Amino acid sequence: MKILLLAFSLLVFLAGCTGQPVQDPLRPPPPDLPYRTWQIGLLAPNYMEVWVESVDVLDQRGIGYYRVHGGVSSIQNPPDNRGDPRGWPARPGVGATRPMTGIDLPEMVFVRWQSLAEPQTYRVRIDIPEWVRQELVTPHSAFCRLDGQYHTLYRRTVTVGLAPGGIAKAWLTGACLEPIEIGRFVGSIHPDGPDEGRTNGRYALPLAPEAQQYIDSHGIPFDSW
């Protein structure tokens, strides 16, 4: 520890002489990305509400980041059973997003979540292949209907869909760009159940009335995801 402190003091002194910023030797350097940060988004099928206890990321440098995202996902609960939860949308949105500030491109994403529709607690590991990391930093010229202009844009969001039965699906998404499927992943029941530290060992939220009405009327289409 004394050696590290002496080394850091020397770096500070040298930086003062050169006018250059100093990188803390105890922290990794910021990732070299063509944008400020990439994102993780969370979504769920209509009525199949979830509570995400934690999202953990292992980046391509081998550095782990814990509980970088969580809470509710993006979901729709149309009244009078007018929504169809079966399957995944052909063009999923980015979901409920959170920026992965200071985190390099992902190698693995781990999600622990409560499927409130059942209820059950699951965990899943999502492996991110190299082609996904390459696509995350590949620019595309895309037309945006919002302003009628072409822009240089990136698919910089890893969107994770979470469904009953422990099913997860992941896409690369970005504004004005078509999503690309990363893969379908099958999680496992977490043997400890709901996280004692975060939800006192209970399921976090009751189902919305519209979600409860749909499940009471139609059940859960487990085989559709």
Rank of each mutant, 00 (worst) to 15 (best):
V137C: 07
P129T: 04
R67V: 13
P139H: 08
L162P: 00
V52A: 02
P206R: 12
R133G: 04
K169Q: 14
L105Q: 02
G93D: 11
S9Q: 11
R27H: 13
T121C: 12
D56S: 10
D223L: 09
G102K: 08
V50T: 08
I189W: 10
G70V: 02
L42W: 00
Y35I: 12
A142W: 01
I182P: 00
P221T: 13
F13N: 05
F185T: 05
Y122K: 05
Q20A: 11
S54E: 13
H140Q: 14
G161T: 02
E49W: 06
C17R: 11
E53D: 14
S9R: 10
I189C: 13
P209V: 09
P164K: 03
F13D: 06
L14C: 09
M48D: 03
D104R: 00
L205F: 14
L205H: 14
D84N: 15
D147K: 03
G95H: 03
V57F: 05
S73P: 06
V55H: 01
P92I: 07
G161Q: 07
Q149F: 10
R123W: 14
F110L: 12
P106H: 01
G148V: 03
H151S: 02
L33H: 05
T101A: 15
P29N: 09
R82F: 09
L177Y: 04
G193A: 03
H218N: 12
P179G: 05
L116Y: 08
G87L: 01
E178W: 13
Y66V: 12
Y66I: 12
Q120Y: 08
G148L: 06
L136G: 01
E181A: 15
S73Y: 05
P34I: 07
G93N: 08
H69M: 11
Q213P: 00
Q120T: 14
I189D: 12
P119I: 03
P106V: 00
R202F: 14
Y154I: 01
G174R: 01
Y203V: 06
Q134A: 10
S188M: 14
V132I: 09
Q120G: 12
D104A: 03
L105R: 05
L153Q: 01
L14N: 03
V68C: 07
S188Y: 15
L5T: 10
V68F: 08
R125Y: 12
L43Y: 13
A90L: 15
F8M: 08
A44M: 09
A204K: 02
G16V: 01
S217W: 06
V50Q: 03
T37H: 15
H140I: 04
F8E: 02
Q23S: 13
L162C: 02
D127W: 07
R125W: 13
A117C: 07
E181W: 11
L177W: 02
Q149N: 11
Q212F: 04
L105A: 02
V160S: 03
L42A: 10
N77E: 09
P25H: 09
R61F: 11
D84M: 09
G102T: 10
P78T: 09
H151T: 04
T152W: 15
T157D: 07
R98P: 02
T152F: 13
Q120F: 11
D84W: 09
V22M: 10
H140V: 06
G193H: 01
G19L: 05
Q39F: 14
I40A: 02
L207Y: 02
I128H: 02
